[in-house]
């Protein structure tokens, strides 16, 4: 079983790397959304420190939304996803692996660069770590919610708007608490409460998300 999941994981990584332009698009979107605020708002440290939390999370949400449109679509079009549902391994675990590999490819780069972006917003010291930790805890939830939306809309030709409509209400708690965690740490308050909430949401979405997503996939390729 583990061997099968490893094969799927490595194959997804390989395929995603060969579709590098897709991934680069979402990464560039994240960086540009983060950079456009200092450019348009002006170079006022106190203002930038105030908005960095929401900006980071909105940028991460948009990047995830853009990247996740393609998590299942190509595999549905070429028929390999229906083959995945036809073997004797549980689809939930296969989907889980697929989502994890997508997270590695789409969200890890964002997390890695978020430290640099934070320092360009004049965030210093421990708060940079909190920014990175916040993204580390919130992106898994965002990816799972987006995967569910992608699975529900995979048979629809232009799913973009509908996906956004599904994802944004559902990911609101993560956005609120993520932005709060960053805001707290910058203003010198203990940020552990919102971070614990994000951790809880992460466990919640990671455990239930793949089950629902697998069910949605089965319905969508029907």
């Amino acid at each position: 079983m583990m061997k099968v999941l490893r094969i799927i994981f490595l194959k997804d990584l390989k395929v995603s790397l060969r579709r590098w332009s897709d991934l680069l698009t979402s990464f560039i979107l994240f960086v540009l959304v983060c950079l456009i605020f200092p450019l348009t708002l002006g170079n006022d440290p106190s203002l930038l420190l105030k908005i960095i939390g929401p900006v980071m999370l909105v940028a991460a949400l948009l990047a995830t939304l853009l990247a996740m449109q393609n998590i299942f679509r190509p595999d549905v079009l070429n028929g390999s996803l229906e083959q995945l549902t036809l073997n004797s391994y549980p689809l939930t675990l296969i989907i889980c692996t697929k989502i994890f590999s997508f997270w590695v490819i789409t969200s890890l780069p964002l997390i890695l660069i978020s430290g640099f972006i934070a320092s360009s917003y004049y965030v210093t010291g421990n708060s940079i770590l909190i920014v990175i930790l916040t993204l580390l805890l919130s992106t898994p939830s965002l990816v799972h919610i987006s995967a569910l939306a992608a699975a529900l809309t995979v048979a629809i030709r232009y799913p973009g708007a509908l996906m956004a409509l599904i994802i944004i209400p559902l990911s609101l708690p993560i956005m609120i608490f993520g932005a709060k965690a960053i805001e707290f740490s910058i203003s010198g308050i203990d940020a552990s409460a919102p971070l614990y909430f994000l951790l809880g949401m992460m466990f919640f979405t990671c455990s239930l998300g793949p089950v629902v997503t697998a069910a949605a996939i089965k319905i969508s390729i029907d």
Binding site: L148, L152, V212, A215, I219, S220
Partner: peptide, 10 residues
């Protein structure tokens, strides 16, 4: 069935 899943998640 797809919307049922969405309603439950909601």
């Amino acid at each position: 069935r797809a919307t049922a899943l969405l309603a439950i998640v909601g």
